[in-house]
Simulated assay, not measured.
Amino acid sequence: MTVLLASLLSLLLAGWSGASAAQPQPAVALGTAARFAVLAGDSVVNTGDSTVTGDLGVTPGVTVAGFPPGNVIGTVHVDDAAAVQAQSDFAIAYDDVASRTPTDTVPTDLGATTLTPGVYTSVSGTFSNTGNLTLDAQGDPDAIFIFQTVSTLLTAAASTVTLTGGAQARNVFWQVGTSATLGADSTLAGNILALASITAGANIVINGRVLARDGTVTLDADTITRPAGTLSISVPQNADLGSARAGSAGVSAPLGEVTVTDTRYGPDTAWIATVSSTTFTTGGATASETIAKSFISYSPGETTDTTGDATFAPGITGSLSSARTAFSVSDGTGENSATWNPTITVTLPASVVVGEYTATITHSVA
């Protein structure tokens, strides 16, 4: 009689389509405000040939003035439901950014400075930039930069912000306790979140957003481009399913949390995450040293965490003999994310021999 001794079955995991590394600061969720390049509480007033790429909105005010036809490449929302929801989501994001614990206190003038990811304050409670500020993400495209002010943000004429090391404008946040004033012919990267107003001088280029909770956004022949969003998935790097003995049904264990994050800001956001597996093997070539994919089952379960207003739907439990849907999202607006902890079940074939078996499970999202 052959006895199957305890066999350790383990999983090596792989992620695809933008698997993200852990970051020191959690992402800032703008919600539906992420769709907007310009958002104001009282009014948006433009002089000259300004171009806005992304939605433009105002609420509770009703004034949008001075934009030539076709110069808003997006939708204009004047005190409508979308603007109201965006201001509500923006208020939550503002409070989140303002409440982050500072990681460093730096001089008020950021010119001629290079900074790595973190949450920054100044002794004066304000920030200015009279030269070039370099933000270095050190190879992490998800790195967060936050600048907190008690009162104002001032940038000088022709000042610049340079992103390097994979830094992304979507991950830079300027939290302004009162108002921001930007000098003519300057460039700025990131999202200005101002409690009062934002005034931009002539010919400014902003790779980011200008969002004012209570006051006015004033533009003058400026170019504002909402940062492009991303769709990414993160997975555990390894998992241990445990062991099984002769005559047992097999093993079943959680894989660990899988998270999809969507910041593409589309009006009808949708994505599908799929999962596939290799066979389990001890490294040998015989059939008895292999557990075929048909013996591996994937159960996504329910979400353990979500953000956004999308409809989140788990896939159907079943065999990984071929790729299958793990989770999907439909009819969302703005940013969303979903986290789930799937269960992997491996049934033992009658002919399997003792050994340590490994496989690779791959999640992807599109």
Rank of each mutant, 00 (worst) to 15 (best):
R209G: 05
V210S: 12
R209H: 02
A143L: 07
G66A: 07
V260Q: 05
G70S: 08
A273L: 01
Q168E: 13
T103E: 04
E356S: 15
P314Y: 06
I192A: 06
S330D: 13
V78Q: 10
V64F: 04
T216Q: 12
Q25N: 12
W340D: 01
T155M: 11
E356I: 15
T303L: 01
V176S: 08
E356P: 01
A169Y: 07
D49S: 14
P24T: 08
S351P: 03
V72G: 02
G250P: 00
G355V: 07
G242N: 06
D55N: 13
A292V: 04
T152E: 14
A228D: 13
G215K: 05
L255S: 05
I146D: 03
S7Y: 00
A19T: 11
T317K: 11
G177V: 07
P24F: 00
A29N: 12
F173A: 01
G318P: 10
V72L: 06
Q85T: 13
V176P: 05
F173G: 03
G41R: 05
A200G: 09
V176G: 06
L9F: 10
T358A: 14
R226L: 12
L188M: 12
D96Q: 14
V62H: 10
S10T: 14
S197Q: 04
D136K: 07
V106G: 01
S351N: 15
T345S: 14
S288C: 07
L163V: 05
G190M: 08
D96L: 11
T199E: 15
A287V: 11
T121D: 00
T333D: 07
G250R: 09
G334D: 02
T347H: 09
T278P: 02
H363G: 07
P68F: 08
A292D: 15
A287W: 10
G190C: 07
A310S: 12
A184N: 14
V275Q: 04
A169Q: 10
A82F: 07
A157E: 15
T269C: 01
A158H: 10
T358L: 14
F145P: 09
G57A: 09
F173E: 04
T306Y: 06
F173C: 06
A6E: 14
G315P: 04
S234H: 06
G334S: 02
A27D: 15
T333P: 00
T114L: 02
H77L: 08
A189S: 15
R226K: 13
S159C: 02
V352L: 03
D262S: 09
T103L: 03
A338T: 10
V172W: 03
V329L: 03
V58P: 09
A326Q: 05
T360R: 15
W271Q: 07
T317M: 03
A19G: 13
S234N: 14
G57W: 04
A246T: 12
A239H: 04
G266M: 08
A169G: 11
G166Y: 11
W271E: 04
T113D: 01
I291Y: 02
I224W: 03
S364C: 00
T75V: 13
T121N: 01
S88Y: 09
R35I: 02
V346K: 02
P102M: 00
D95F: 01
T278K: 06
G61H: 05
I316K: 11
T343I: 15
A83N: 08
N46I: 01
T116H: 11
